[in-house]
Simulated assay, not measured.
Amino acid sequence: METLRHIVLFVHLIGFAVLFGAWAVQAFGGKRQFATIMEYGLLIAGIAGLALAAPWGLPEGAEPNYIKIGTKLVVLVVIGALVGSGLARQKRGEKITPAVFWLVGILTALNAGIAVIWR
């Protein structure tokens, strides 16, 4: 069961890597717009994160940190809202404000940092 949990964790990290990687390509490529693949990375990270929130495969006596899980979920929802609204604006031909674009990258890095640093 622990091996399956590690596989789900790996998939979760791949989701964030896809999201952050697509953001970084846009940020340092000069376009500074959202790509559809960001939504896929967000979806992968979200579904795998919810699977990790379930109390299966934990060592004996360990309990999930529900405050950490809730914090990561709130950050993920905010990222989703920003990316979704940004993509909608792009479809209408409008530009994304730089603050929203950079906030997505910062929040994505923050979410990964919460996962690694917060015990």
Score class of each variant (00 low, 15 high):
residue 82 L to M: 15
residue 45 A to V: 07
residue 13 L to S: 11
residue 27 A to P: 10
residue 115 A to W: 01
residue 98 P to D: 13
residue 60 E to V: 02
residue 40 Y to R: 11
residue 34 F to Y: 14
residue 6 H to V: 08
residue 12 H to W: 02
residue 113 G to P: 00
residue 71 T to C: 12
residue 56 W to I: 13
residue 56 W to P: 05
residue 93 G to D: 01
residue 104 V to F: 03
residue 35 A to T: 11
residue 117 I to N: 07
residue 63 E to Y: 02
residue 19 L to D: 02
residue 10 F to K: 03
residue 82 L to W: 12
residue 32 R to S: 02
residue 91 K to D: 09
residue 22 A to L: 06
residue 31 K to D: 14
residue 102 W to L: 05
residue 69 I to C: 04
residue 40 Y to S: 12
residue 38 M to P: 01
residue 93 G to N: 01
residue 96 I to K: 05
residue 16 F to N: 11
residue 34 F to A: 06
residue 79 I to Y: 11
residue 59 P to M: 04
residue 67 I to L: 13
residue 106 I to S: 04
residue 33 Q to G: 12
residue 1 M to C: 08
residue 28 F to M: 13
residue 108 T to S: 00
residue 37 I to H: 01
residue 19 L to Q: 02
residue 51 A to N: 09
residue 51 A to L: 15
residue 92 R to Y: 04
residue 93 G to V: 03
residue 106 I to M: 04
residue 85 S to V: 07
residue 22 A to T: 12
residue 69 I to M: 04
residue 119 R to V: 01
residue 105 G to V: 05
residue 11 V to K: 01
residue 54 A to I: 13
residue 81 A to H: 13
residue 103 L to Y: 06
residue 40 Y to D: 10
residue 35 A to E: 15
residue 102 W to Y: 08
residue 52 L to P: 12
residue 81 A to I: 15
residue 8 V to Y: 00
residue 54 A to Y: 14
residue 102 W to Q: 02
residue 100 V to A: 14
residue 19 L to S: 05
residue 48 A to V: 11
residue 84 G to Q: 10
residue 8 V to M: 06
residue 24 A to N: 12
residue 57 G to K: 05
residue 95 K to E: 15
residue 101 F to V: 00
residue 72 K to P: 07
residue 47 I to H: 08
residue 7 I to T: 07
residue 91 K to Q: 12
residue 31 K to L: 10
residue 33 Q to P: 04
residue 68 K to D: 05
residue 118 W to M: 03
residue 102 W to N: 03
residue 26 Q to E: 15
residue 83 V to F: 10
residue 36 T to C: 07
residue 39 E to H: 11
residue 95 K to F: 09
residue 111 N to W: 00
residue 17 A to D: 07
residue 92 R to E: 07
residue 72 K to A: 03
residue 23 W to Q: 07
residue 50 L to G: 15
residue 14 I to G: 08
residue 74 V to W: 13
residue 94 E to Y: 12
residue 86 G to N: 06
residue 94 E to N: 09
residue 94 E to H: 12
residue 108 T to Q: 00
residue 110 L to P: 00
residue 50 L to M: 15
residue 49 G to D: 06
residue 59 P to W: 00
residue 106 I to H: 05
residue 37 I to P: 02
residue 65 N to A: 04
residue 38 M to G: 03
residue 31 K to W: 05
residue 98 P to C: 10
residue 20 F to E: 12
residue 27 A to Q: 14
residue 41 G to P: 02
residue 48 A to L: 13
residue 64 P to Y: 00
residue 14 I to V: 13
residue 49 G to K: 01
residue 42 L to R: 03
residue 95 K to T: 12
residue 12 H to R: 06
residue 72 K to F: 03
residue 4 L to Q: 08
residue 81 A to E: 14
residue 71 T to W: 13
residue 3 T to D: 14
residue 113 G to M: 03
residue 109 A to F: 09
residue 58 L to I: 00
residue 84 G to R: 11
residue 79 I to Q: 05
residue 58 L to C: 06
residue 59 P to H: 00
residue 46 G to E: 08
residue 31 K to P: 10
residue 21 G to N: 04
residue 111 N to G: 01
residue 103 L to N: 02
residue 5 R to H: 02
residue 57 G to E: 10
residue 117 I to E: 10
residue 99 A to I: 11
residue 9 L to N: 07
residue 44 I to E: 03
residue 62 A to K: 13
residue 82 L to P: 08
residue 107 L to G: 00
residue 117 I to D: 08
